Amino acid sequence: MFYWFYRHLEINIFQYISIRAGIGFFIAFFLTLYVMPKFIAWAKSKKASQPIYDLAPQSHQQKAGTPTMGGLVFVSATIIATLLTAKLNNFYVALGLFTLAAFCFIGIKDDISKILHNKNSAGLSAKMKLILQFIVAIIIATALYWHGHTTTIHIPFYKYPLADFHIYAIVFWIIVMVAASNAVNVTDGLDGLATVPSVLAFFTLSAIVYITGHAIMSNYLLLPNIKLSGELTILGSAMSGSLIAFLWYNSHPAEVFMGDSGSLAIGGIMGYMAIVAKSEILLIIIGFIFVIETVSVILQVGSYKIRKKRVFLMAPIHHHFEQKGWKENKIIVRFWIISFMANLIALLSLKIR
């Protein structure tokens, strides 16, 4: 809509991505802030609450009855804000909106399965969830490849492409999106724990995708120039705005959980933006909290299957610290601090090459 103002009413300010990204941020923020309390009231009336995992720490049982599927609100707000502020004929924006909606849809199916069918925390089977994620990721990765998106791989602190995967990049991109989606899902276990690292990640990815879409800035920083990808900054900015508003209600003690409809969508679009910005490897630093949470689960399961011994008191690792007696707020804030520092390092890597 705002780009329409520029093209038809000649309001020049709306040609700039940075201006429209800022407008998109605030539209998503205020829309989420306005709709979320109404959604919470509706969810409570329908008893759409998150079943608490039986093996979760005992303190989590008091969260029973908290509404879930808050992700449906902030994802919808992000999509609306992007539709109003971005160029909809831009390939990267259009595919980004599809990515967000598709992964959210998988999460909705899982959440509804938990709430209405199983009445427990199981939801969709792990196999079915993975199959759906892979199907969506295959569609997105194939679309990127046939559009001509560069298949080179870049690593932090090194100015030249490490390798060119050619058609095998499709496999790599699929793994990135599915891994990122599940990593955020694993992290979403404490109030606000996944929300702030996600906000920080989207700020960082939005900055990187803006730079890679800008010929002069990308050349100065020795980054690949991905033509027309800068418009994706608007989607990332809108995502940040909606998540900050969601945090208003998700901070401890949470009034609403994002559910898989939120966590899977966040991870999916995070992976997609990293692929577009050629920051697939850098995403390990950008989403460092999500990485250590996922690694803790892999180590725990692997160790128990091989040695019949646990590495942590409980996995994911945030539960380990709960078992050690750390208060929930202390765990959350400390993980936020780690995420903030990791994203600073990721941004510094753009210059130190």
Results as ranks from 00 to 15, higher is better:
Tyr6Pro: 00
Ile11Cys: 10
Phe14Ala: 08
Phe14Leu: 07
Gln15Pro: 06
Tyr16Val: 02
Gly22Tyr: 01
Phe25Val: 01
Leu31Arg: 02
Lys44Arg: 11
Ala48Pro: 12
Ser49His: 14
Pro51Val: 09
Tyr53Gln: 13
Asp54Ala: 15
Gln62Ile: 12
Gly71Arg: 10
Ala77Gly: 09
Leu84Glu: 08
Ala86Phe: 03
Lys87Ser: 15
Leu88Trp: 07
Asn90Gly: 08
Val93Cys: 07
Val93Gly: 04
Phe105Ser: 15
Ser113Trp: 02
Ser113His: 08
Lys119Glu: 14
Asn120Asp: 14
Leu124Asn: 08
Met128His: 11
Phe134His: 07
Thr142Phe: 06
Ala143Lys: 05
Tyr145Ile: 11
Gly148Ile: 04
Gly148Trp: 02
Ile155Ser: 06
Ile155Val: 15
Tyr158Met: 10
Tyr158Ser: 07
Ile170Ala: 06
Ile174His: 04
Met177Arg: 01
Asn182Leu: 03
Val186Ser: 08
Val196Gln: 05
Phe203Gly: 11
Leu205Met: 13
Gly213Val: 01
His214Ala: 11
Leu222Cys: 11
Leu223Asn: 07
Lys227Asn: 12
Ile234Glu: 00
Gly236Phe: 03
Ala238Pro: 05
Leu247Phe: 15
Trp248Met: 11
Gly262Cys: 03
Ile266Lys: 09
Met273His: 02
Ile275Ser: 05
Val276Gly: 03
Ser279Trp: 06
Ile286Arg: 03
Phe290Arg: 04
Ser296His: 12
Val297Ile: 09
Lys309Ala: 08
Phe312Asn: 09
Phe312Asp: 12
Phe312Pro: 06
His319Gly: 08
Lys324Thr: 00
Lys324Asp: 03
Trp326Thr: 04
Lys330Asp: 13
Arg334Phe: 06
Arg334Gln: 12
Phe340His: 05
Ala342Ile: 09
Leu344Val: 13
Leu350Glu: 12
Lys351Arg: 13
